[in-house]
Amino acid sequence: MIEFSNLDIIRNLLFATQWTILLSLAAFIGGTSVALALTAMRLTGNSAMNMVVRVYVEIFQGTPLLMQMFICFFGLSILGYEISAWSAAILSLTFFTSAFLVEIWRGCIDTLPKGQWEASRCLGLGFLQTLRHIILPQAIRVATAPTVGFSVQVIKGTALASIIGFVELTKVGTMLNNATFEPFKVFSLVAIIYFLLCYPLSWYSKVLEKKFNVSR
Rank of each mutant, 00 (worst) to 15 (best):
F60G: 01
E209Y: 04
I29C: 05
I104S: 02
K206W: 07
E209H: 04
F150H: 10
G173W: 00
E82D: 14
T144S: 12
R54A: 15
S92R: 10
P200M: 13
V152N: 07
Q68V: 08
I21F: 06
F212T: 07
S151R: 02
I109G: 00
K206H: 11
A85C: 04
A191Q: 07
A35E: 01
I83M: 14
V102E: 00
Y81G: 06
G115R: 10
R121Q: 11
S188G: 09
G75E: 10
F184N: 10
L160F: 09
A139P: 01
V102C: 02
V34P: 00
P200Y: 13
R106M: 07
M175H: 05
M175Q: 13
G149D: 04
K210F: 04
E182P: 01
K210I: 06
L196Y: 09
V190R: 01
N6M: 11
K211C: 04
L66S: 05
C72A: 14
W19Y: 14
V55W: 14
L65E: 05
P113K: 15
S151T: 08
W105Y: 09
F28E: 01
L201W: 03
L25S: 07
P113A: 14
V53A: 03
G126Q: 10
L176M: 08
I9D: 00
G80N: 11
G62I: 10
L36M: 14
V55N: 13
M1Y: 06
I83T: 11
V55D: 09
G30E: 01
V190H: 02
Y56C: 07
S151L: 11
A143V: 03
N6D: 09
Y81Q: 14
G31T: 05
C198I: 09
Q18V: 08
F74Q: 13
F28Q: 02
S202H: 04
L7H: 13
I104Q: 04
G75Y: 12
V102N: 00
L43S: 04
K210C: 04
Q129F: 09
A27D: 01
K211T: 06
P137F: 13
L201F: 05
N46M: 11
V214W: 06
F212E: 04
G75F: 14
I10W: 07
N213L: 09
C108W: 03
F60Q: 11
K114T: 06
C72P: 01
R11P: 00
Y81N: 13
Q18R: 14
L169N: 01
W117H: 05
F100Q: 07
S162G: 02
T111Q: 11
E168M: 03
S120C: 07
I10A: 12
G31C: 04
S87E: 12
I78S: 12
K171E: 06
D110E: 12
M51N: 15
